[in-house]
């Protein structure tokens, strides 16, 4: 009987399937398997896999490490606040701080080179959103996330915060430069 009445057969799990249901279940299941195996496949053959390399840290330690890189590799400053633009050696470690409500420092990377990008938040949770590339990563306080990034186009990028972090959230935006050699 209908769905708001008891099933006609008390032992409902012995009821036969409609052919159409069987066909659809098989098709859908195969598709589910394809989608499942795409993820490990991409880990082996794809070039865009988010690193899971993570360390516990504290805002003080992370700020200190960032400051060291800034002191060594700042090439110029921008805006009235004199935000340092850091150009680390190709293939080196770069640090990016997320805090209320700014990214610090500005990074300048070389196209085609791979960098170890260290991300952490000083206070609340933030969202690293690289535009117009549209790569988005969660940034948490207390965790140092190390991603290997390889810019493939030169130009000017923006880093937008896309995790709500309080009243100044919509002003938390910065630049990132990718330059040809």
């Amino acid at each position: 009987m209908s769905a708001i009445h008891p099933p006609a057969q008390r032992i409902w799990w012995k009821q036969p399937l409609d052919k159409i249901e069987l066909a659809w279940i098989l098709i859908a299941f195969v598709w589910c398997l394809v989608m499942f195996f795409m993820m490990p496949y991409w880990h082996v053959y794809g070039k865009q896999n988010l690193s899971n390399e993570t360390y516990r840290t504290t805002p003080e330690i992370f700020a200190k490490k960032t400051q060291e890189v800034v002191d060594k590799h700042t090439v110029r400053t921008e805006t009235e606040e004199k935000i340092p633009v850091v150009r680390p050696p190709a293939g080196g470690d770069v640090y990016l701080i997320a805090r209320l409500w700014a990214w610090w420092p500005i990074l300048e990377l070389e196209k085609g080179k791979t960098y170890r990008l260290h991300l952490s938040a000083m206070d609340y949770q933030h969202g690293f959103s690289l535009q117009p590339e549209n790569i988005n990563v969660q940034v948490l306080p207390g965790y140092e996330h190390v991603m290997n990034v390889t810019p493939n186009r030169s130009g000017e990028y923006a880093i937008v915060c896309n995790e709500f972090c309080g009243i100044g959230h919509h002003k938390m935006v910065s630049k990132l430069y990718v330059v040809d050699k």
């Binding site: 009235e80 117009p132 549209n134 919509h170």
Partner: peptide, 24 residues
């Protein structure tokens, strides 16, 4: 979202920010 517009965001013009970004 595909164009990168963030969620929970009051102002995608980033008015008042030092280094604003212009969405397409």
């Amino acid at each position: 979202g595909t164009l990168g517009v963030p969620r929970r965001h009051w102002d995608i013009t980033f008015a008042g920010a030092a280094l604003p970004y212009e969405f397409p």
